[in-house]
Design a protein around this nucleic acid. Structure first.
Lengths: 222, 222
DNA sequence: TAGATTGTTAATCGATTAACAATC
DNA sequence: TAGATTGTTAATCGATTAACAATC
């Protein structure tokens, strides 16, 4: 039996980490699950359940969790000290917006290069706080990944027509994790059981809001 | 008791709709839940359960669902004929990327205007297939919403420091649904129980992939 | 008729919430 | 000690999967 980690747990762990970062408390301060509830909106029971599930048992009764220790545990789970290198396939507006996404830096997730097929993008750079991330031609992708065998993760932001083809290529080049931001549901090639693929549905939360606003008549009152 | 609609159901309904659009089948073709499974990856049991839950009972035994009727039902749920008008607060890269997001058009979700505080953005336009969407100064937002009282939904893509302040303003101006794309968890003002707020966590699926790739050692085999 | 597929109910699975003994 | 807070188990809730009678 695989121990499963759900997207929701990881997202909450991110919340705890980011909230803690923002509060900028002294290392030896003790924070309780109730306080974490106040700043993250996640119930204190859920907080403790998450910690229990992930084996974080550093709490002191009557005090809470020492900020220094808690940081260490959260960083471990989120691989923040190791960091992660990612490449972005598709240098359109979405690809570039993701490349400069602020929270990726906080999480030590580093976009190393973008790839596109459009000649007028190739050769340019995306500027991120002093750093310049190059846009390469998609034809050089295989070569690039041979030179950087430790880059394991790709974000896919290409037009949907070429999405599945590029996913298959990425897998054949040795990529192990792909986040699909295209509107098409992509499937993992049968040959690649060890590759993680997540379909990220960008509009989903908006669609829910639209439903709720335009179907209020149908929602019964409590 | 409110009948709750989960984000997941709405997302799957979107999948069915988009898949059907792409296939471009004749109106009188009958598609089965098994076929829907093949093209969307959602199990046929889940498909029928979703239809049952939402009151779609147009199936014919041994045949399936008539494409024309199914389209009609899905459109109704997704408010596609009515459409939805939205505004975008924050005209940075993410705000502009969302404004031109292709699937919003498919869903008849129309971005009508963007708002920003930066003088060098104000007065410009975001170009979307022949349409030009204006970027206005944030100070004109109240006035703008008075002129467009039927615009009920806002996407929030501003820097996190000003996020909660702007959310409160949006609510006070009469906005009824807000999708928060900023990295901060925002809370609904106590006064506004009827306002829908969804926090959209952009990186979450990437974070899950990072976890799985860097913690493979910890995941037990089946 | 025999086979296929729906609509619906029941069973299972997973995630959240509640409860509480332990103890600092 | 009394009060507070953890770690952990149990109860609840919700979502998915499985099953199957109805029937075209």
């Amino acid at each position: 039996m695989k121990k499963k980690i759900s997207l929701r747990v990881i997202r909450r762990i991110s919340f705890y980490y980011e909230a803690l970062l923002k509060l900028n408390l002294p290392d030896d301060y003790y924070i309780s699950s109730t306080q974490l509830e106040e700043i993250t909106g996640v119930s204190c029971n859920q907080v403790r359940q998450d910690f229990f599930y992930l084996g974080i048992s550093i709490g002191k009764q009557k005090k809470g969790y020492q900020v220094k220790k808690l940081f260490k545990e959260l960083k471990k789970i989120l691989s923040i000290d190791t960091g992660a290198d990612v490449i972005v396939i598709g240098a359109g507006r979405l690809g570039r917006a993701l490349s400069e996404y602020k929270l990726f830096k906080v999480r030590n997730i580093n976009v190393r290069a973008l790839f596109d097929i459009k000649e007028d993008l190739v050769g340019h750079f995306v500027h991120i706080k002093g750093e310049e991330i190059p846009i390469y031609h998609i034809d050089t992708l295989e070569e690039y990944l041979k030179e950087h065998p430790n880059y394991k993760i790709a974000l896919l932001t290409v037009p949907e027509q070429s999405a599945q083809m590029l996913l298959d290529k990425l897998v054949s080049y040795g990529i192990k994790g792909i986040v699909n931001f295209t509107p098409r549901i992509l499937k993992r090639p049968d040959s690649a059981a060890d590759v993680q693929i997540v379909n990220d549905c960008i509009g989903a939360s908006l669609y829910k809001i639209v439903y709720q606003i335009y179907h209020q008549d149908k929602i019964l009152q409590d």
